[in-house]
Simulated assay, not measured.
Amino acid sequence: MPRVLRSASLLGLGVLGIGLLSGCVANSPAATHTALTVDSSATDCAVSANEAPTGSIRFSVTNSGDQVTEFYLLAADGLRIVGEAENIGPGLTRDLVVELAEGSYFTACKPGMTGDGVGKAEFTATKTDAAATVDVDLVTQIDTSNTNYASYVSDQIDQLVTGTDAFAAAYSAGDDDTARSLYASTRVHWERVETIAESFGDLDPKLDLREADLEEGQNWTGWHAIEKDLWPQDAEAGFVAYTAEKRAALTEQLVADTATLHEKVQGLTFTLSQQTNGAIGLLDEVATGKVTGEEEAWSHTDLWDFQANVDGAKVLYDGVRPILLKTDADLAAALDTEFGSLQTLLDAQRVDEGFRLYTDLTPAEIRALADQVNALGEPLNQLTVALVL
């Protein structure tokens, strides 16, 4: 939901300063480490083992495919990037060295460096007596977080570009069933990093403006303009379906604006306050648009957006949580509890690989979601003060 004036100050661009419990280490000083190999092909991401002891782990990634590839180590949520090796050309090998705490992770490769990637698999760091204790100082946590959150943003926009291309092609060709099936699942990549996208001035309204927020004489483009045409049964009486020419113009603009967004997020850096305020801003998006059912006025896919905003806020919170545990463990415990409770309510609304339509929710279910958003919002609003002031 566009909030250009608010978000411009909320998430200005600068230098990142957040920490992670685990992350990429350029040259680990550890005396011993676990060495693993990764074969990144066109269709798979084969890691030599699916578990290793905690401490320093080196992944030697060889590209056996015919496209430049990337290797990712993801946190247990499958979203937050713990470490990555990029720009690995065909036939080349690059190392990724990480210091891992005990827990669950995922490995994946991305041939062509676009799309969803291939070969995503579970990976476990197990605690053993022989494993070195992970002791990453604050400076290293900040440096690691800088790289990893920027990579997360870039990855989400990469997937947005790929999904938008497929969506636009289907819609422009008149394949409305396919376009409708791709609408919500593509938009989640936007919603996860929405507060960052909003910081780029008029890109946000061009891509995500709702009809209710149109100003007099303003040209309406983007996702919601197309949404109305895809779900005309919920539009106002007398709504006239778009012409083929208008469809082509809307999709051309959508693809072009998404490509511009992709260019702008390359090389971004952020400050600690921008990270914490970004999490607060994403929950604000939930409270003012998603939980009210105002965002997706015709498709009623608000819960997809709701979950994506929560995903983004949780990734941001997880990044700063190790520092918060040292400064305000009680606040961390409260946030852990409230995030968990909100996720439980969202999980109850899942259907197959998506969610129930917003119009299928009962007033009691909507009220429960709204109350839990408020319950999470209270401690989350304390995050910046706890870490920055």
Rank of each mutant, 00 (worst) to 15 (best):
T162Y: 06
L207S: 03
N148Q: 12
D175G: 06
A125G: 07
A169M: 01
P205S: 09
P205N: 09
Y152D: 02
A150K: 10
A179P: 04
S154I: 03
R180P: 12
D176H: 13
L138Q: 14
P205G: 08
V136G: 14
P205Y: 05
T140C: 09
Y149D: 00
V153N: 05
A184P: 03
D202V: 09
A150P: 06
T147Q: 07
E191H: 05
T186R: 10
N148F: 05
R180F: 11
A169G: 05
D155H: 12
A197G: 13
N148I: 02
E211D: 09
S185A: 08
K127N: 10
A170I: 00
T186Q: 04
S199M: 07
D137S: 11
V134E: 05
E211P: 07
D129M: 12
S172R: 15
A132G: 15
D137K: 04
D137V: 04
V134D: 02
D176R: 15
V153S: 08
D135R: 14
T186G: 06
D176S: 13
T195H: 15
K127Y: 13
D208V: 01
H189F: 12
T147E: 02
S199G: 14
R210F: 01
A130P: 10
N146D: 07
L203Q: 01
V193L: 04
A197W: 12
E194S: 15
A184D: 03
A150S: 12
G174V: 01
A121E: 08
A125V: 04
D208Y: 08
D129I: 08
D129Y: 11
S151Q: 05
S172F: 03
T195D: 14
T126P: 08
T144Q: 10
I196P: 01
T140I: 09
A173P: 04
S181H: 03
D208R: 10
V136W: 13
I196G: 04
G163V: 00
